[in-house]
Structure formats: structure tokens, C-alpha cells
Design a protein around this nucleic acid. Structure first.
Lengths: 348, 348
DNA sequence: GTGAAAGCGCTAACAG
DNA sequence: CTGTTAGCGCTTTCAC
């Protein structure tokens, strides 16, 4: 069953101009809501656009001006927290002429850089990089090429704006909550990080630092107990197995991410331990599945929607004012208490 | 803190040509691996590209030839099943010059059409539309403009290739499994669908039909019991509430999607019923959370990875051969038995 | 096998 | 306020 006619030639700005009896400049101006077109002309042009079903080619636009496209990169499509951020971006973009295009920027730095470059090659007007792992130098290179907002990365930044949730406080909230329930042997499973810059900038490292600080602050410094694995289900399983082998074993586990907590649950189930009866468990991210009835995980909510809309606001602002000073927005997380944490009395 | 120097001018094909001492045509040919460039020239050009750090502009390419970008649209970033499909796309694209860009095509048809048009405006070389809700006519219009593969949509198609999992069989697998466990009052929660075309094409409708057919085939026709809500957690909760009000109530519930099963679990927890002790539960999609220890949901695996790679293969093939006949690939689902389904005997 | 030159559709100077 | 014109960076004839 062969295709029918040849793919119809696209309607161009020239067709619209001819149809409306004006110049292409005029059409271009109307398209961009630019200065210098009479109301009368605007009407004529708009109706010609309507009648012909004209749509501007982003490729052609990109060669001279803007593409009205902003690129968003994120490391993982399975973490629902990122979906919240994207919702925020979408909401902030609603009513503007901008469209968002996404790409996943795998885990390793090389693949990530490739994705960022691909965005630049495609003439994005601006970039929102969610939880990038690349070096500061790399991020600055990207930001030199195109207006950029980095989400979920702490520390000073020179060429780009940042939006991040306060992971230090978030971790403190968890420890405080567990300590208030009477727990002392509160262990933490973190994402292994060795790079010194990332130790200062990546959310996982900040959470770990927040845990340590809060433990000290509650006079629980001697009970600090950290397993370094990875932010994944496997990482959680592995970390929990090791923690359960301790004697005495912890009475509470603070997993650095909800997905890690899922791995912890695997290990606890396997060991025949109940939550929170035998051990309390908290996660981080307030992902969708944390709320499911059989899981009901105590966790930290990061207000992803707000993060996304704030990042977008900053980006659009920077596109308009390329050399305003860079801004660093820090948002506050909130503890969400559910059924995986309980008083120590109940434990045993 | 103002930005430093002006954004450096991009390296162009002209720079590369000059640096290598050849024509721009030659560079272009090397870039596209086109015929008509000596090995010697290829080497010269490639090293010039390397030295200058040249990267082709997709916008400029898009005006004459390809952009090496394929667009993927999907309705929802929260359904982890789609992430599996995307992984398949990524894997199939690995090693090619193509890059994928994603966009969410909201729920309603108008917004969806806007997203599809946005993809075309941005000169995508091809489109993979995952579970689109638009009319056949709309899909055909898109496919006329650009090579298109539609994923997760049944029925005949004229201008585009399709890849879909056999939802009819998948639903039958679930019913067979439950019937073999001795269940008779097997209820189903479906996504409400009234549009006649969608009743023939959308996976949710096909699953429902498969359920009905399998019930008949097992002489359980009189026990057919369907609640029409939506494929969402709320839909599952609502449907389950209604089903639990029946007298007698079903001994098993087949939720049309895993996320629906989560809502069912909410309702069951609320009602103080245990799974599978009081009632068996099965989902569909084998999403990530179905495997979590506290959930351990019996479900149907759709081989999302395979779906994605197959769709990509078809798309690249169609980009190369625009008028080969359209293909319709149907993949087979598999039942994944976990701990939410048990023999009726165990169900008091 | 190679290169000169003509656009692709749009925006931005500039002239009227 | 309006139109003419010169590119943006690439691909593609079409000569050589």
C-alpha cells in the first residue's frame, strides 16, 4: 500500500505575504508581535495565516532569531519527582510561545555532554538542566552558548541560574523526626560520591552532610552509620543487607531516596522483618509510589512543581535579559510522615 | 555578576572547509558519509572538524536535508511503562546519528495536535507517537507530513506503521490465570471509552474486550462485571469502592492498568480487606512498582523495551524508504505471576 | 573526485 | 508604517 501523493510543500511566509497582499517583513513582524505593523495589517496577515494553515518553520527561524523552544534534560524518566518538575515547567510555559523538548542525559558525563550539545545544535533558546552530573566547567561552557538554568545542584555558579531544594534541611527533618520518635541508631544509605566538587554540589552529598550534622546536633554523633552504595533499588537492597548484619542493628534507616527505600524493603522482607515494627524507614523525594497504600513511606517532599515553574521563570527572564546577575533560588522541603516510621517503644 | 565575553561565534562548515583547505561541499559530503569523497579528503576533513570542535547546526541542516532528530510524544511521564519504551528507542538509536527529543502530548486531542505540529515545525525527521488519542484522520495528516510510527494503537492504518502489544491476549491471560485459580466472580475496571473508533483501536478498550471474551470462553459470562472509570489511581479507587459494595462481592479484580491496581489497593486497605486473602488482584503493564516487595502485583508484561526498539527500527526504515507498504507489528504480552493472586480456596 | 553557486524559510538592516 | 534585500549554515544540483 504505497503512500499517496508527494508530501505537500509546506506553506511559507512568502505564500502568506502574497495571499495577504503584503511583504514578508510584515508577516514576520506580525508573527513575532514586533513593533511596526498597523492593526489593519495584523488582521489581514492573521487571517491569511489562518486560511492557509501556515506554521512557521523553527529551523528557518533558528538560523536568524529564536526557535521558541526550550530544552529540558533529565537523568531518568522513572523518577516521578522529575515529572513534577516537568509539570511546573509546562505550567510556566503555558500562555507563552515557547514549547519544551526533553531529552534524557544518561548517567555518565560523556553521554550527558553529548545530550547537552545536541540541544545546542538544535538551536534551543534556553536550557533547563535537571540534576546534571557534569563538571562546573562543563556547565559553564553550556551556559556560555545558551541561557541555562541548572536544577538540583548546590554551590556557587557563575554563568547560570540555579534552583535547588534545600537538601541539607531535608535530611535534618528526617533525622529530627526519627530522633523525636526516640530512635538513636539511625543509619543512612547514601549514593557513593568521591569527586570533591560533587561532594559540595550534588544533592545526594548534601543530604548525607545534613544527616551527619543533624545526628551531631541531637547528640547522636556516636551512632552515625553510613552505607555508601547508589541511589537505586539495588543500592538500597545492598546497603540494607549490610546494615542488618550489624550488631546491634539500627532501629531506623534513612534512605537517601525513595527508590533506595524500595530496595531496603526488599531486604527487610527477605529477612522477615516488619516495618515499622522491627525497624523504621524513611526515604526522600516523595515519589508517587511512596504514597501507595502498601508502601506508605515517610519521606521528604521537594515541591517539584514549584521547582520547575521557578526554573522556567528564571530562564525566560534570562533569555530576555542575558546579562542580569545570576540568581540562586533555594526552596524548602517538607517532611511527609506516613506509616513506615514509628516510636522506638513500638520497636521490639 | 555579568556574563563575560560575547557568546563566541559558532564554528561553521566554512571554517572547517578553510582549515582543511577544501570546499564546503566536501565537508558536507564527509559529514553525511555521502558518495564522492576520497579517503584522503575524509581524513583531512575529519581532523579539521576535530581540531576546530565543529558541530553541525541542526537548524541549517533542517532547511535542506535532515536534522537527524526523531521526535517522540507520549501522554504521561508518570507511567513507568513508557520509560521502558523510551529505553528501547534509545537502544535502537545507539550507534546511529539520530537523537531523540520528547514531548508530552497532554490528554485532550487539541493539545495533542499542538504538540504533534510543534514536532513537525521543528523539522523532525520522523515521529514516534506513543498511545496517541487523536482521530485516525489526524494521525494520517501527521504521517503525510513526516514519517510516523504509532505505538499502542490497534486497527488498520493507512499512512503510518504501528507497533502494539496484543492487549486482547494479555487480558485473556489474566482471566485464564484467575479462572485456573478457581475464581468465578472476576470483575474488571476499565477506562471509560465511548468514541466508536477508539473502542476499536485503543488498548484499554481492547483489554476490556479480551476480558469479556475470555470470561465467555470460560463459561463465566454471567459473572462479567465491569466498572468504567479511568486508568488512574483515583479511577481504581472509585471502581473498587463500587465493586466492594456488590453483594456478593467479586473474589478477584482485574485492573486494566497497574496504576489502577494501586487505587484498588487503597480501597481495599480502607475496607480492611487483605490481598490475596480476601480478594485477588491483577494489573496490567508490569510497571516498576508492581515488583516492589510490599506490592508484588500479578500483572501483564508488555515488553516495553522491545516495543520501543521495534518502533524505532520501523521508523528509520521508513525514513529511508518512504513508500514501502505500511507495517503492523503486534507483540505478545506475558503474564507475571506475583503475590496478589491466590487460589479461591485460600479466599475463605 | 571536486568545487562554485543557488537556494531552503526566515529575520534584521536599511531605505523609502 | 511598509517593503527590499542580504544573509543565517547547510545541502544540492551541476559544471569541471
Amino acid at each position: 500500500m504505497p503512500r499517496g501523493s508527494a508530501p505537500a510543500r509546506r506553506v511559507t511566509i512568502v505564500d502568506v505575504a502574497r495571499h495577504a497582499g503584503v511583504s514578508t517583513t510584515a508577516v514576520s513582524k506580525v508573527l513575532r508581535n514586533a513593533y511596526g505593523a498597523s492593526p489593519d495589517m495584523r488582521i489581514k496577515v492573521r487571517s491569511a495565516i489562518e486560511e492557509l494553515g501556515y506554521r512557521p518553520s523553527a529551523a528557518a527561524r533558528g538560523m536568524r532569531g529564536q526557535t521558541y523552544t526550550i530544552g529540558v534534560t533529565l537523568p531518568d524518566f522513572r523518577n516521578p519527582f522529575f515529572a513534577d518538575i516537568l509539570d511546573g515547567v509546562t505550567a510556566a510555559l503555558d500562555g507563552t510561545d515557547y514549547v519544551q523538548m526533553l531529552a534524557r542525559c544518561c548517567n555518565d558525563e560523556v553521554a550527558e555532554a553529548r545530550v547537552h550539545d545536541a540541544m545546542i545544535d538544535r538551536s534551543m533558546d534556553g536550557l533547563i538542566l535537571i540534576a546534571p552530573t557534569g563538571s562546573r566547567k562543563h556547565l559553564e561552557r553550556i551556559a556560555r552558548a545558551v541561557p541555562t538554568v541548572v536544577v538540583g545542584r548546590h554551590g556557587e555558579a557563575t554563568g547560570y541560574d540555579t534552583v535547588a531544594d534545600d537538601d541539607f534541611t531535608g535530611a535534618e527533618l528526617v533525622v529530627e523526626h526519627l530522633a523525636a520518635l526516640g530512635h538513636q541508631r539511625i543509619a543512612h544509605i547514601e549514593h557513593l560520591e568521591t569527586n570533591p566538587v560533587r561532594l559540595r554540589e550534588m544533592p545526594n552529598a548534601i543530604r548525607s552532610a545534613g544527616y551527619r550534622h543533624a545526628m551531631q546536633a541531637h547528640d547522636l554523633g556516636t551512632f552515625i552509620d553510613i552505607e555508601s552504595t547508589s541511589y537505586s533499588r539495588e543500592g538500597g537492597y545492598l546497603g540494607a543487607r549490610r546494615l542488618l548484619a550489624r550488631d546491634p542493628r539500627p532501629t531506623a534507616i534513612f534512605a537517601g531516596a525513595d527508590i533506595v527505600a524500595m530496595g531496603v524493603l526488599d531486604a527487610l522482607t527477605e529477612a522477615g522483618l516488619s516495618v515499622p515494627g522491627d525497624i523504621s524507614l524513611a526515604g526522600y523525594d516523595n515519589t508517587m509510589f511512596a504514597a501507595f497504600a502498601p508502601i506508605s513511606l515517610t519521606t521528604v517532599d521537594q515541591a517539584g512543581h514549584h521547582i520547575g515553574s521557578e526554573a522556567t521563570r528564571l530562564l525566560l527572564d534570562r533569555i530576555a535579559h542575558r546579562d542580569r546577575p545570576t540568581a540562586q533560588v533555594k526552596l524548602s522541603p517538607a517532611l511527609v510522615t506516613r506509616r513506615t516510621t514509628a516510636p522506638i517503644d513500638a520497636t521490639v
